[in-house]
Design a protein around this nucleic acid. Structure first.
Lengths: 196, 196
DNA sequence: AACGATTCGTGCATTAATGCACAAATCGTT
DNA sequence: AACGATTTGTGCATTAATGCACGAATCGTT
């Protein structure tokens, strides 16, 4: 794990933190590399040591969060949607500045789409819709339906400054998702297999 | 000013911050260099690059704050005791962890004495007791009297978790000090000189 | 379109930070 | 006092970060 030089970690942390902060203050395209290096208290040269340009930098930040969420989802795959959701919402909460900025900012319009496709990907691994009866619903439609609902709630939650704690919102959304997925399960043969 | 390499500043900041934090958690003599480097996220070697040992490190931290207070006092020498005091108390407040730790911790018993002598030194530059009539009060006694009173208040303020804002405590202490110093002034010939 | 100013991206020499290894010193327990 | 374990302080080779200088690209104004 941590045989990466701590200087690299510290520099990258400072740089990424600076970008998030700046994005909450002005739009991404009017942020200069100089701004970032000033805020991060790092030489401008150091940024180019790790990233191609600010777009590459933003990509890497996004990718990192997505990967973190993916790992959380894997470790929580046995927990059902309610508790699995809780882990995600807790992660959202602890990275409030990032997610609220990314979902609000006009500078990263690709994030919503990227995030939605990622949610679909995770759902696909969870619900196992391909096995058993598909009962006439196209998989793409099924996944996108839930992911869209989910993302809408997440965006609402952030834009309203997290009006309720992760426990509450995670449970409510978890219940709703399970209602959809569970209906699917009881109409398919592999119900018991899924529940194990 | 800032032609010092930013890496040096960052490392030293992290190290000093780590020491203060650790001192608020355990006594100075049971803090190891390893503790400090872990907390500061800095190589143990880096600490020895800047400091001889942890005592030298603590000395430098203290010295820095003293120098900062000295500069504040110089720039505020024309302000009278009330507003001059305010600047100090605001500095105390913004470095709460350091001062409360140093005045409570048993690991730095020298700090109180060092701090008191510094207060006397600053007072000496302010009250100009040597010129004019000394009206029979020994200078050492005069300065130590006020400094002791001052330090007692500062310690009380910290140990009680800053029960009132800097404005209030600074004004009250300022009034009391001026009462002593002013009485001195009106019994000496250089009253107008001091007031200019 | 022309322009000056700003920002970008890179090469390069220098300096700071790092991690490791090691012997000496110190600590804590028996 | 003896012992092992921990901590200390240092040497050393390697790597990351820095600051500066430079031409190219981009931006904003006229």
């Amino acid at each position: 794990m941590s045989n990466v030089d701590r200087r690299i970690l510290k520099s990258q942390e400072a740089i990424k933190k600076a970008v998030i902060e700046l994005m909450s203050e002005k739009s991404f395209d009017q942020i200069t590399i100089q701004d970032i290096s000033d805020r991060a208290n790092v030489s401008r040269r150091t940024i180019y040591l790790h990233y191609l340009d600010k777009f590459d930098l933003l990509d890497k930040i996004i990718e990192e969060h997505i990967n973190e969420l993916r790992e959380l989802a894997e470790s929580a795959s046995e927990m059902g949607f309610i508790n699995g959701n809780l882990i995600w919402f807790e992660y959202f909460e602890s990275h409030y500045l990032f997610f609220s900025t990314m979902l609000v900012s006009k500078g990263a319009p690709s994030f919503r789409r990227q995030f939605l496709e990622f949610v679909m990907e995770v759902l696909k691994g969870e619900v196992n819709l391909t096995e058993g009866k598909n009962h006439g619903i196209n998989e793409e439609v099924f996944l996108r339906f839930i992911a869209g609902a989910y993302l809408e709630i997440v965006e609402w939650w952030f834009k309203n400054g997290m009006p309720c704690p992760p426990q509450i919102i995670a449970e409510q959304v978890g219940v709703l998702i399970e209602r959809i997925v569970y209906l699917d399960k009881i109409t398919t043969k592999n119900c018991e297999h899924n529940r194990r």
